[in-house]
Simulated scan of single mutants.
Amino acid sequence: MILLLTPLQLFKTLSDDTRLSIVLLLREMGELCVCDIGAALDAPQPKISRHLGMLRDAGVLLDRKEGKWVHYRLSPQMPAWAARVIEEAWEADRTAARKLASKLTSVNGTADGKSCCG
């Protein structure tokens, strides 16, 4: 069941630094697995998973399982106004998003070239 995302829900969801960083990183990179997001944000997997769950429950992210790994991306089903808010936030702070993304050598690789989910 898809819930209707309200402006209040979106702004409450994005008010946390970690969740906003995740959203901006996914806007920059497209799709990432949990371990890559954790590596980019230098945060433990349980913390990242908790925040990803909140973003998914709000309708901001979609996930897909590949073996034992879960990959996340921005939901194309979120309301257009919410997508515009995220796009504007990314435009305003794309340098920070690119700095996070630079920690990864590819969508599934870490800065040291080793994939954490491969």
Rank of each mutant, 00 (worst) to 15 (best):
L100H: 08
R98I: 01
G59P: 04
W90A: 01
R19T: 02
V70S: 13
A111W: 10
R19H: 05
L100Y: 12
W90F: 15
L41P: 03
D93F: 09
D93G: 08
S75F: 04
V60F: 02
M54Y: 09
L20T: 09
K103Q: 08
D36Y: 03
F11A: 01
L8A: 14
M29A: 10
E31Y: 06
D42A: 13
V60N: 05
R73W: 09
E31C: 07
L3T: 09
K103I: 03
T110R: 15
I48A: 07
S49K: 12
G67M: 05
G67I: 03
F11C: 01
S49G: 05
L74H: 07
K65D: 08
G113Y: 03
L74I: 04
A43Y: 09
G109A: 12
L26A: 02
C117R: 11
R50G: 04
R94H: 14
V70Q: 12
H51K: 08
I48T: 08
T18E: 08
C35K: 15
M29F: 00
A40V: 06
K12C: 06
P46E: 07
R73S: 15
V23N: 04
L25R: 02
E88N: 11
R19W: 03
R27E: 14
V60Y: 04
L62P: 00
L52T: 08
K47T: 15
E88S: 14
H71V: 14
T105F: 06
G30H: 08
D57W: 00
A97H: 11
E87H: 10
A92N: 14
E91F: 12
V60Q: 02
R94N: 15
A43I: 10
S49D: 10
D36S: 14
G67C: 04
V107N: 06
L3D: 05
G59C: 05
L26K: 00
D63E: 13
V60G: 06
L25H: 03
K68A: 13
A82K: 02
I22M: 12
L10K: 02
L74Y: 02
